[in-house]
Amino acid sequence: MESQEKIKIRVCQGTTCFVMGASRLEGLETQIPPQWRQKVEISAQPCLGMCQKAGFMKAPFVRIGDEIIGSATVDSVLEKLSGIFK
């Protein structure tokens, strides 16, 4: 099923996430398969505030829709998206 609303992907650019590798997620935009590009909206966020409450999860954090993923990499974000778009 195709949703009209774009899925919001927010990459945390807080200090902890940045040093833990959020800067590498910049490549996400170019690595997203063409068929998904119109369905998502990617942007950075000053801080998602997750490092202080995420429990066992680790920075960098990315929010996909309402879901938070920790230790995010381009691959883990794409994997999550494939779950959503399957």
Binding site: Q13, F18, A22, S23, E26, A44
Partner: peptide
């Protein structure tokens, strides 16, 4: 926030 990185900083 538009871009992710500028130089070596967010």
């Amino acid at each position: 926030t538009e871009r992710f990185v500028k130089g070596s900083l967010p």
